[in-house]
Write a protein that binds this DNA or RNA. Structure first.
Lengths: 203, 203, 203, 203
DNA sequence: ATCTAATCGAGACGGTACGTCGAGTCTTCCC
DNA sequence: GGGAAGACTCGACGTACCGTCTCGATTAGAT
């Protein structure tokens, strides 16, 4: 991502000679992108539409991002940055329950569409897939695993496979979001938590 | 789907007077579509390519299907029709294990790409979404639930929520397939089975 | 033209064994063709439309005519068959005047569109061109020339070039019809007659 | 015509802010169109072929012209722009003879095909018809009539109808070009001139 | 009274051109 | 040198028409 290189350069105080990047335009582009994806999905969001809504030009977009996917990816990253971190109540089941409730609230809210869009786009574009994993999936897993790790040997079995646990609780949520065969309710989340915990709890 | 209307008409003996639809061409089109999706994904599969590979003309495709998505949907439906049904070994855990192994084999095999493609396409196209559910998700769930139902009160808790169970075991598999953060191995499947069963088993 | 062969065969009483050609359908097809050309021009007249309007099938059309142009050509031939022949008043100028007036009435009438259509089609299709000449241009010229021939040495100069004369009087009429820069009136026709006669008359 | 609006804007110095139209591409497109029409006629000239030969894209063509006909019309206009004007020898018959010889040379030359194509296309498309008249027929007539006007009262009768005269000399030429029943030779042209002049000359 | 061959209406088929739309690039002027 | 405007290439989309074909149903002369 060009942006990363540039950000690093700017942190080091090495500003180029010409006019610096218009940060306002950057924000407007990312916002426009996000809104359009929310409203219409990934494929129906055109770069022309983003440019127009942002009051920017396509050239500006393509100067800073290599393609449409990259814009939307960064938009996602920004949107996701300030997400509620893992709770720490002391109780394993309570931690998980709260975490999942927050997560479901996110998915079923205005932003849910974006995640659907990204999972979709990831199937056709390896780069999107990689970024989606790096920006969204992996960080959340890392934090969540670290939080659960503290319960190991207490509520959690000594030999519990946390990767498996992660998939066991997040997988069904994504599944309902994407397949849409059943609604993604809090009741479902709670019941799921119970089942999985029953299988992983220390006895 | 136009095809349905026509099939019904034929069942009623109302064959229509003109030249009948070329069933061979229909098959070739669906096969070509399937192969191309497997090879290149949903978006990269063009109608021109389908037509050429099927030895058909684009006009024929658009006479019978309203758009590219519809062709691929029907191709999926055909491909999926003859899938392995639910096993019945007498043991709950064995039933689930075998079922999941078969399923994983399907997803990781040649056809897996198709499912990824469809889940992706479904996010951008409500019709694809509905068809995907009706053709793939729901029928499999119905069969699997019926099979598990026989264990209720025996290995399975009296009050077990089968819809929840379905999502608990299929969700993580789809998740790994789609997110791709970890491989979809048999080891994972077996471990997952165990965890979920532990949570749902009658004690 | 297949029709010719067949007509000859029928005149000789050699009817085939199968179902004979449906003459009613033939008439309806030619009529439909004519009406459509009049209404919409040559290019906009589709074979499907002809078939539908005639209550015939495209197969029937293509069984009897090699292509769309041939249908329209024969339609023209039929329409033109019963045209007013050359008048014979005894006076050269009167003969020409009457002949041209009739001709202009034809061109500016409902059928005028057809001639425009054919001249147009002839530019893109040598076969149409040839047929148009053979069916329309040449016969009329032959009759008209024969009629004028009787005036040679009397009102008409001994050395008058009748081919030239033909073009000199018909050319401007077609020109106005096709180019449409000025209306094709009787006044124009009469004036034209006068000018040309002045140039060709015996003095 | 979009081009006209733009040209006016440029004349007013309102150059617009974006990338300007690629005039080279425009020229190449029109040239390609002309060459293809000359080689294959109006109908057989495809937009894809024009685009390929011009090294342009179809999108560019359709950005500036609403359809194929419009491209060819403008191509004709450009081609026709620098045609030989009316000669002025002082002699009426010489003026006409030279003018007609030049005209016949044009029609029977490489460009003749284009005129045939346009007269044809004009019959199916009113817009083509109007443009053909405005761009080709009318300007030539205006110039030619002005040139002949100078002879009025001298070689030319006081009451000569120049519109009639125009049609009387140009009509037969177009007629032979379009109907093709006889070749369009210089001999014919000269003889025609003589006949018409005989009818119009002052005596 | 069948049998046989050609015709008919209906309509699907392969091919080919059309005109449209989106992605990503490039070019101009302005700041 | 960045940015807005907007033209450009490429390539897929879905539509329309041509001329061909394949059905079942008709219609006569031949047997």
């Amino acid at each position: 991502m060009t942006t990363l290189v540039r950000e690093q350069a700017e942190e080091l105080g090495q500003r180029g000679r010409g006019r610096p990047r218009d940060e306002v335009a950057r924000k407007r582009i990312l916002e426009a992108a996000l809104e359009l994806v929310e409203a219409q999905g990934f494929a129906a969001t055109t770069t022309d539409a983003i440019a127009e809504r942002a009051g920017a030009s396509k050239a500006t977009i393509y100067r800073w991002w290599p393609n449409k996917a990259a814009v939307l990816i960064e938009a996602l990253r920004e949107a996701v940055a300030q997400e509620t971190p893992m709770p720490e109540t002391g109780s394993l089941s309570e931690d998980i329950r709260i975490q999942l409730r927050n997560f479901v609230k996110l998915l079923t809210g205005r932003r849910g569409r974006i995640f659907k869009a990204f999972v979709a786009a990831a199937q056709n574009d390896p780069e999107v897939a990689e970024t989606f994993r790096a920006v969204w999936i992996v960080p959340r897993r890392t934090i969540a695993k670290a939080a659960l790790e503290r319960h190991r040997g207490r509520d959690l079995r000594e030999d519990a496979d946390l990767d498996l646990l992660m998939d066991a609780i997040y997988g069904p949520l994504y599944f309902r979001l994407l397949a849409g065969h059943r609604p993604l309710t809090e009741k479902f989340t709670d019941a799921l938590t119970e089942v999985v915990l029953e299988g992983i709890r220390k006895r």
